[in-house]
Amino acid sequence: MNIKKYLGTALACVLLGAVLAGCGGEEKGKTAENKDLPIGVLAHLNASEEQYNEFAKQAEKQYSKPGQFAHKFIYYDNLNAMEMALSAGKIKEMSTYKSVADYLIMRNGEFVISDHGGRVLADAFCCALSAQESELKAQFDQVIDDMKKDGTLKALADTYITGLKDGAEPPAVELPRLDGAGTIKVGVTGDLPPLDLVLPDGKAAGFSTAVLAELSRRVGKNVEIVNIDSAARASALTSGKVDVVFWVAVPADGGFLPGNADTPQGIVVTKPYYEDVIVHVTKK
């Protein structure tokens, strides 16, 4: 009876291994010849995929060599899925932020940034709040301006983004502990290092978290962090279960899409605290 069970388990493991290895092996051959593979993009929260397809098509015309791209995109809910798709050869490139690409390449030698030349697009990083929190949003906007002026944002970026050398573990973020102050509930996903990640000890960290800790400290509030699946962020905000989530907005000067194209009804977005260029990562 027991031996049967062990054998069963062993067989299951072997099968699993074969399936996993099979997927990787089979796709490798295809990648080299297939130029029409789609490009992976992280799904935006509210704008439809059709809207983004249109936007991406226009954006590509700005690159130097037209026809260089397949006009086909696949949208992923999180970076893990997109990275696995790239590994398996399901997509030829993934579109992500420079800071994220650097972080990825430092930890996984499989990948490299591919240079397309031409126009470089950038996205802005903001906080999103429920529309009822307009007072807090105004305070945040003010403090973000201050932090830009006094160099705090730059210093934080140095510590949490550019300071990460040789795959070092990102530093922890100290959350404000103010006696008797109100609490802001923040939903983090841990899905976009080095901006939003969770440390081995389970604590949220990353540049965006550090900025938010400083923002709350300056407006005199404590922070409570909850970890949430990226797909549930909009529901969490609009239902009032969390007060703030990190948001990426298309800059208004992009010319293709209005800056708030992705912002759902009932949600307001602060001024950007960071801008990062979009790069394409591919397999070596």
Partner: peptide, 11 residues
């Protein structure tokens, strides 16, 4: 998922 993202080794 958090661990996979942080270490960039999802597989």
């Amino acid at each position: 998922n958090n661990m996979a993202s942080r270490t960039m080794q999802p597989m």
